[in-house]
Design a protein around this nucleic acid. Sequence first.
DNA 1: AGGAAAAATCTAGGGCTCCTAGGAATCTCT
DNA 2: AGAGATTCCTAGGAGCCCTAGATTTTTCCT
Lengths: 199, 199
Amino acid sequence: MRMVRAGLTADRVTLAGAELADEVGLDHVTMSAVARRLGVKDASLYAHVRSLEDLRGRIALLAADEKTIRIAEATAGRAGKDALVAYANAWRQYAHDHPGRYTATQIPIQIDPELAARAAGPRRAVELTYSMLRGYALEEPDLTDAVRLMRSTLHGFTSLEAAGGFAHARPAEDTWVRCLDALHTLLEHWPTHDEGDPA
Amino acid sequence: MRMVRAGLTADRVTLAGAELADEVGLDHVTMSAVARRLGVKDASLYAHVRSLEDLRGRIALLAADEKTIRIAEATAGRAGKDALVAYANAWRQYAHDHPGRYTATQIPIQIDPELAARAAGPRRAVELTYSMLRGYALEEPDLTDAVRLMRSTLHGFTSLEAAGGFAHARPAEDTWVRCLDALHTLLEHWPTHDEGDPA
DNA sequence: AGGAAAAATCTAGGGCTCCTAGGAATCTCT
DNA sequence: AGAGATTCCTAGGAGCCCTAGATTTTTCCT
């Protein structure tokens, strides 16, 4: 029987999984489904990917890399609020464009360490965020706190939005720009010490 | 053969699923596993629950109810920053105590409408948040935006924390209290109009 | 109390999934 | 051209979701 090789590779399998995740949701990404999409039997995938768990981890890493690259491109050459808005929009846009990949990002990290080490994505992402915030006059540990607040808010918003958490009364888009305004003013007037009245 | 009924009910099945979710993670909650935990064959569950999808939805609703109740108890009789902190801590604590249930909360809503209607949780939660923010002088649509920002930040933080998203350098707890301070001052000085310098 | 009706649980089984083991086809390299 | 490595396959076991129909238990009516 004539056999044509599919030319599989770990990266191609991962990409197929990522595309599938965007189309049908991450938890409908199965070995069988990926194999079908690649015109291959499911057993063939195990030469390139250790398990379904492993595949999900690779998709998560791919997504982290892609998202970081998008943010880097968006914020290049910008500073201050301009950079903040570009950063946030790139983040949200990626989640919109690649919902399956994005949810892969959220899974508890249990990735093959060797694989994770090769991927510069996460480290790079942290650096990006820090340098983006350099425009605001923040010292450690306030800087770390601000970074974490940023990530929390952006992730929380896009995550809730994707899950349909915002009723349709007011467009999410409008809330989004107001939230960015709020984050900006907050970063400018970061409460360095406890300055609040305890009432 | 002597047969003793297990006394199953939709609620008992849901509870077993919720407990299992907290122990082994939501996506290890299977019909078979729940059945084993209840000392029953998996087929028996289908008299009470339509499908695995349905079970997950019920777990999500249960979690939403429980979380809302906790927040209501925590914020009762408090106002201003006091209420804010109580609200946020109750939220985070619930996520810590019931990680599986909490992640069930995040699943895109595709619940049996009839079931969702019976559960007052979500509606109540929204009301709670609004009334908690009544201490800050916010008018619509700023109020809606503030509510959404709150939820985004709280959800994002707890979600990232659960996923191990915060490196161990600085304790997440410290960042948390700083974030609450920040949210408080932000709500007090909400940028009603665009007051930012566009640089 | 006796018996019918309703409800709860079981057995049996089909189809899909993950994953392993070992065999056949294809590519690479000398 | 042939050896060795690589790619992909077939075969199959185990677990999961879910349905259908039988069997047992409870309820409830007279």
